[in-house]
């Protein structure tokens, strides 16, 4: 499998230095592209393919029909601060290249990986000129379309097999967030995810759209062994644990399976009994 990330290395190199590529505090400011700040690393003019993506008319709602809590739509929500902190941590932890591909996974189903991926993508999309692509690769049990309360997204399988052009399936919310949603489960998801064809399509999407970060919602790590097998295809992993159902043994097992396959960028404790940190 050909990785395009290596060829898309940041021309300015290391972002971790105190040089001036980073704003004070290390966290990018929202809706601003200050000279020398992290978002300025992004090409301010999006590629034509990105601009051609159809833009949905309505923004993700936080109404009674929302299946998960889209906290990022409500900046006053106390938990929105947690996602701002997570966004800052993720931007600091990104590998030294652009177009990073980050997987959001949980040990078992219903731990909140879809919730975390959706809200993190919305939080990242608030940074101007920082393009975020969110893909629902939890093919056996897709949930992002329900999370955003967007219907009729179509089967993602057609795009992943090359039967449908990505420009026809992907769409944008606002200027900086593109979504690849799926409204039906894929029967033979394991074979599709382990094949070169799907990752070739994803490499092509990253080449043409040039997102600064691609968030991928993957199946639970302890339930689907396919997730472990595709981990080398991502640059980092965010592990989402559920404070109401995840045990320490499950987290330890996830760490063991991640070992030498993908760097663990951080653990998110969802439904925690304590107050949000940061």
């Amino acid at each position: 499998m050909i990785r395009t990330l290596v060829s898309r290395l940041d021309p300015r190199g290391d972002r971790s230095g105190a040089g001036g590529n980073r704003p004070p505090g290390g966290v990018p400011r929202e809706h601003t592209a200050l000279p020398g700040s992290f978002p300025a690393l992004t090409d301010p003019s999006p590629p034509p393919a990105w601009a051609r993506l159809r833009r949905v008319a309505r923004s993700p709602s936080y109404g009674p029909k929302a299946k998960v809590r889209l906290i990022s739509c409500r900046p006053t929500d106390p938990a929105a601060k947690a996602f701002e902190h997570l966004r800052g941590h993720l931007l600091r932890s990104l590998p030294g290249n652009r177009m990073a591909r980050i997987a959001v996974i949980s040990p078992t189903p219903d731990c909140g990986s879809t919730f975390a991926a959706a809200n993190l993508a919305l939080s990242l999309s608030r940074i101007s000129a920082f393009r975020t692509l969110l893909l629902d690769l939890n093919l056996p049990d897709p949930g992002l379309a329900r999370a955003f309360d967007i219907k009729g997204t179509g089967p993602l399988e057609e795009m992943l097999t090359g039967a449908r052009a990505p420009e026809r399936h992907l769409f944008r919310i606002g200027e900086t967030l593109a979504l690849g949603l799926n409204d039906r489960p894929v029967k033979d998801a394991s074979a599709l995810m382990q094949g070169d064809e799907m990752w070739g399509v994803l490499d092509g999407i990253q080449n043409t759209l040039a997102p600064d970060i691609t968030l991928i919602d993957l199946p639970p790590l302890l339930r689907d062994d396919t997730t472990r097998l595709v981990l080398p295809m991502v640059d980092g992993v965010l592990l989402v644990a559920d404070g109401a159902r995840t045990t320490s043994r499950q987290i330890a097992e996830c760490e063991r399976r991640l070992c030498d396959r993908a760097p663990l960028l951080g653990v998110v404790l969802n439904r925690a009994a304590d107050v949000p940190s940061g």
């Binding site: 938990a79 941590h89 045990t247 320490s248 653990v267 998110v268 404790l269 304590d274 949000p276």
Partner: peptide
């Protein structure tokens, strides 16, 4: 189950990045 960040730190030596209530 792991209920709090402190509990995770104590039991696994792993500090969560954020705790979402």
């Amino acid at each position: 189950t792991i209920h709090t960040a402190e509990q995770m730190d104590r039991e696994l030596g792993l500090r969560p990045v954020v705790s979402i209530p």
